[in-house]
Nucleic acid binder design. Structure first.
Lengths: 338, 338
DNA sequence: TAATTTTATGCAATCGATTACCCAATATTA
DNA sequence: TAATATTGGGTAATCGATTGCATAAAATTA
């Protein structure tokens, strides 16, 4: 029906060749200012739009970037996406988002598909389940920039943008200690993942600083989230010496814990303090707003995108860049005694 | 570095032409079973991957679909995306997601960009701000299928998948009346949008059915969400005859209202019942779980994707399809008396 | 004025896959 | 057995933009 106008149409219109049109549109210095003006005029007059697909074929660059993450309906991840798009769209890149649902085999399929679709780069937060590095090595073998965010793998030739989880956890725990709590428990998810190891590390450091001995009974790894948080809290409260505070590595875990604590009649924050991690929006709306460590996700997305762009621009020279962002502790009612 | 293998490599390998390879890979009946087998073997041996960009150029189909929506970090929208991807990825389509942040000019830019990127279709939930139809007509002029979901525009030549908002609101309000509430207020957002008009309509129908006169003072349009919900509730409770229930067209509005009501000492659900709309996950986690109308977003996404596929398959014949999905009322503590 | 640059543009191949059209070899039919 | 049909596959153009190489015209230099 409506044929799109191509550079050939413009060429015919002006009695020049497509090559000249192409050069004029790309502001090639070999083309006279006069011709350029004519071409540009004709282009707007004929409503010319460059064919990105043809450019992609010629250049081998699709101008698409794959973003791979567990779920997009977590505030953290969707905010990261927002940061990535804000940085990449103005540069003419499109973002293809895929969700792994925390499954390794889904992640492998997705990466494969993205490579087949010849994305110019992959920005990924690995699934909890992922053990293999094979798919990542395939990415590297194809010379496609690979940037990890939040959850990374230590693979030479890749870059990463992560949060200083250690420091975030340290601050959260220290804050609980400053509130006077002395028996601080820690709820985590999966200690095979670096981020959770680091959160545990920061927790330990704060304890050590206050001369408190680390008690392994106070560390519980949850399976799922909210109900598991309740269960974990229950378990903790049934210890001979129950804790007086919880630093949870997730907000949903913190929420579950709070629900259990209220059920058993605990006063928060008077008797018991809780801090979560991620600063999910719901932490603010709760009747009892929950303190949480903010991960600055938009900045993380922007930074990951910038690293990708650097990688692209560095033609051949392989850049390996690891950026660590600083988290912020949002103190709310769940941990503010006074 | 690593050259990707093309059909020419396979052709050379087998001493045949690329045309034959192409036909063999596409299972063309003109190619003998023997040759097909050889080609397929060589393809896997050489690790051949079809070049989607080249195919796109030749066919004029990019195999990309644009999805445009206000925000991806709303559970409703991210679930719709999930539905779309589940339906489209197996068919070889990729989904490009863009957020309008409820801004009309952003929406116009995005649609323009998607057309430039030659997507094969656009699935969109229009921004609250959007008045113009110009960008939509551009889509139609390029013969690109345009499918609205949730928030639609009445434009000939387009399809839509929406929720029966009227019925959802009707059920929610009826449920409140069944609980014995007789002074049911309604909080809405923007009555220039069809979905909110319909929710108001369903609300009115339920009232009428119970012989209750519609009271315009009981309908409040909020600007933003949660704090506005509190304010609106305050205003309602200061009326000479305050309501005894609220049906809110948003969950955040319902949450804000509940917060205010608790502050002023109301007992929910004994003295006052509240129902929201969207069934955002937080409605379940709350200490006081909030009743809400579920929009079945995954199904909505799947349906929109299916409509797109029908449109694509129908070669030339323009399909105009309007699907209306049925919502479900999730009754929770906030409105369950007894 | 002749020789040499410079400037501005054309020519044609290329990226990888698809497909209309053509043709040789074999199979079928009269 | 000659004529026709079928099978299997090759040739070359095409999608739209880019770019190395070539070249005519204009400008500069000797």
């Amino acid at each position: 029906m409506k044929k799109k106008t191509t550079i050939y149409d413009i060429a015919k219109e002006l009695n020049i060749t497509a090559a000249t049109v192409s050069r004029a549109l790309n502001d090639n210095p070999r083309i006279s200012a006069e011709t350029k003006k004519l071409v540009l005029e004709a282009a707007t007059r004929l409503n010319y739009k460059q064919n990105r697909v043809a450019q992609a074929l010629k250049s081998g660059k699709s101008k698409n970037v794959g973003v791979v993450l567990p779920y997009i309906n977590r505030n953290f991840f969707s905010s990261v996406i927002r940061g990535i798009e804000e940085e990449l769209n103005p540069k003419g890149y499109y973002v293809i988002i895929s969700q792994t649902h925390e499954k390794e085999n889904k992640e492998i399929d997705i990466v494969q598909n993205l490579l087949d679709a010849q994305v110019d780069g992959i920005i990924i937060s690995v699934s909890r389940q992922t053990n293999s590095n094979k798919h990542f090595n395939q990415v590297l073998a194809k010379n496609v920039p690979l940037i990890f965010f939040d959850r990374k793998k230590e693979i030479p030739g890749t870059s990463s943008v992560t949060l200083d989880d250690f420091n975030g956890a340290y601050r959260a725990t220290k804050h609980l200690l400053e509130q006077g709590c002395r028996k601080v428990a820690h709820m985590t998810i999966d200690l095979s993942l670096l981020i959770y190891q680091n959160r545990l590390g920061g927790y330990k450091k704060a304890l050590a600083e206050y001369g408190i001995e680390f008690n392994p009974e106070y560390v519980i790894a949850l399976q799922s989230e909210i109900t598991a948080g309740k269960d974990a809290a229950k378990k903790l409260m049934e210890l001979p010496e129950p804790p007086d505070a919880i630093f949870s590595a997730t907000d949903l875990g913190a929420l579950g814990a709070i629900q259990h604590l209220k059920e058993v009649g605990m006063n928060i924050p008077e008797d018991f303090c809780v801090v979560g991690f991620s600063n999910e929006p719901f932490t603010q709306f709760m009747e009892l707003p929950i303190s949480s460590v903010d991960q600055n996700p938009v900045l993380m997305g922007k930074t990951a995108a910038k690293v990708f762009l650097e990688q692209i621009d560095s033609e051949g020279v392989k850049i390996e860049k690891n950026v660590v962002l600083d988290p912020t502790l949002e103190i709310r009612t769940s941990s503010q005694k006074k």
